[in-house]
Design a protein around this nucleic acid. Structure first.
Length: 378
RNA sequence: GUGGAUGUAGCUCAGUUGGUUAGAGCGUCAGGUUGUGGCCCUGAAGGCCGUGGGUUCGAGUCCCAUCAUUCACC
C-alpha cells in the first residue's frame, strides 16, 4: 500500500507499507548483491546506518549459493538476518552486463555463468521462481537492459519484448504467491520501463505497462552510456505517464546530485553501487562535496571525514587513519569508508524527506544540487 | 685471497649487429567509476644507465680501471 503524504511541485514524500515494514520515501536502497554489503557490513550494522531497504540480486544468488538453499533456510531475510524489506533485482541487468555468450529469444535468455561458464537459461518465469524462493519483499520484472546509444529498431523490438515478458512475470508471480508453501505470499512486483533514449518508445512502453496494475514502476536502462542531461530528459518525459499512486524507482542511479535532481522530477526509490564501490577506492561523499581520502593532503589530517557526521567512522576515526588503512589494503579501511558513504546516502534521503515534510524542498534542492557535486576545498 | 656473475625509475626488470627524445610492470601522485566480478579505465611525476677514463661521427650497449652487491673455490 503506497501513500502520498505530501508533494512539492513534482517531488513526492510517500510511504510504502509492506509485510516486512514501512518504507519512507524518497529512499535509497543499499546494495548487497550477494546477500552482503561489499566491504564487510552486516545486516544488523546496516540497520545502524539507517538503511531502510536492502537490495540483493537474483542472478548472483541463483548461481551461488543457489536460491533453493536460501529458500530452505527461510528466505533471504532470515538467511542474512535482515529484519526490514528486501528488493531483489531480476537478474536482467546482470545477464546483459556480466554473463558471456548470451542469446536472447522470445522465451528468455541463454547465457554462460560468469563464475564457471556453465550454460544457464533465464526467462520471466525462472526469474520470478528464483525471487519467490529468495522471498524478497519486492521482486523486479525480468527485462532486457540495453546500453545507450542503441539503434531505434532494436530498442523498439527489445522494449516491446520486455513488456511481453512483464505480463508473464505478473502471471507467474500471481501463481507463485497463491501456492500454499510460498514463504512470502505477499511478494510485490515492480515493472520496468525501457525504450533507450527515444522519447516515443519510452512513453509508449510506460503507457503499456502502467495498464498492468503492478505494485510499482521502475525506469530502467538509464545511466548505461548516455550523458547525464539525456538521463534527466528521459525521466522528465516518462514521469508524467507513470501512475501517481504507485512508487517510482530509478534503477542504478546515482550520484547524490543525480538523486536530488530525480527526486525533483518525481522519483521515489533509488539504488546504486556508487557509495560502496567508490568507498572501497577512497572516494567519499560529504555535505561539503566529494572527497578522495587517499589524496596526499590528508596524510596527517586528524579530522573526521565529514565534521558533524554521525557515522561510526566519523565518530571514532581520522582521515589520516582511514587513508592509511585503505592504502595498506586493510579490510577495516574499506569497511569504515563504506559505512560512511552508506550513512551519508541514507542521511541525504532523510534530509530530503525532512525538506519535503517541512515544505522547503525547493530551497534544499537549489542549495545542494551545486554543493554536493563539488570537490571539498580542504 | 682467486675466479665468475650482476649494477638502468622508489622496487623487479626489458633495452636488437653501437644509431632520433632510454621503456614496461608494480609503487607514488591526480582524475574517472551509476539495476557491483574487492574490479577496471585515464593522465602525470619520477633516470648523470654504479663511478672515472678510453675507442667512435655517435656508447645503456665495445675496451680499461675502480667501487658495490652476490655466488663458487681456497
Amino acid at each position: 500500500m503506497f501513500t502520498l503524504i505530501r508533494t512539492e511541485d513534482r517531488a513526492r514524500r510517500g510511504r510504502l507499507e509492506t509485510v516486512h515494514g514501512t518504507i519512507e520515501t524518497p529512499v535509497f536502497m543499499n546494495v548487497g548483491t550477494c546477500a552482503a554489503i561489499k566491504g564487510g557490513v552486516s545486516a544488523p550494522e546496516l540497520a545502524e546506518l539507517h538503511c531502510q531497504v536492502e537490495l540483493s540480486n537474483t542472478y548472483h544468488l541463483h548461481i551461488r549459493p543457489g536460491d533453493g538453499l536460501i529458500r530452505d533456510l527461510g528466505g533471504i531475510r532470515r538467511f542474512m538476518n535482515w529484519q526490514g524489506p528486501v528488493l531483489t533485482d531480476s537478474g536482467g541487468f546482470q545477464v546483459f552486463s556480466l554473463a558471456g555468450l548470451r542469446k536472447i529469444k522470445e522465451e528468455g535468455v541463454y547465457f554462460a555463468s560468469h563464475i564457471d561458464g556453465k550454460r544457464i537459461f533465464m526467462g520471466p518465469e525462472e526469474s520470478m521462481r528464483i525471487q519467490s524462493n529468495l522471498a524478497s519483499t519486492i521482486a523486479m520484472a525480468f527485462d532486457e537492459c540495453i546500453e545507450n546509444p542503441a539503434p531505434y529498431d532494436y530498442v523498439k523490438a527489445s522494449s516491446e519484448r520486455t513488456a511481453r515478458w512483464l505480463l508473464r512475470c505478473r502471471d507467474e508471480m500471481a501463481r507463485l504467491n497463491s501456492l500454499p508453501d510460498t514463504i512470502n505470499p505477499h511478494q510485490m512486483l515492480f515493472g520496468i520501463n525501457q525504450g533507450g533514449t527515444y522519447d516515443d518508445l519510452r512513453i509508449a512502453n510506460m503507457e503499456t505497462i502502467a495498464s498492468y496494475g503492478l505494485d510499482g514502476y521502475a525506469i530502467g536502462g538509464l545511466a548505461v552510456g548516455e550523458d547525464t542531461e539525456t538521463m534527466y530528459h528521459i525521466i522528465d518525459v516518462v514521469e508524467p505517464h507513470m501512475p501517481k499512486d504507485k512508487p517510482r524507482y530509478l534503477m542504478g542511479v546515482g550520484t547524490p546530485v543525480n538523486i536530488l535532481e530525480s527526486v525533483h522530477l518525481g522519483v521515489d526509490f533509488f539504488d546504486c553501487v556508487m557509495p560502496s564501490r567508490n568507498a572501497r577506492h577512497g572516494n567519499l561523499f560529504t555535505w561539503r562535496g566529494k572527497m578522495n581520502v587517499l589524496n596526499e593532503k590528508y596524510l596527517r589530517d586528524p579530522r573526521p571525514i565529514d565534521e558533524g557526521c554521525g557515522c561510526p567512522a566519523c565518530r571514532a576515526h581520522s582521515r589520516a587513519y582511514i587513508r592509511h588503512l585503505i592504502k595498506a589494503k586493510e579490510a577495516l579501511g574499506m569497511r569504515l569508508a563504506v559505512m560512511h558513504n552508506l550513512w551519508f546516502y541514507n542521511d541525504l534521503m532523510q534530509k530530503i524527506r525532512d525538506a519535503l515534510d517541512g515544505g522547503y524542498f525547493g530551497q534544499f534542492y537549489e542549495k545542494y544540487r551545486v554543493v554536493l557535486g563539488e570537490r571539498v576545498a580542504d
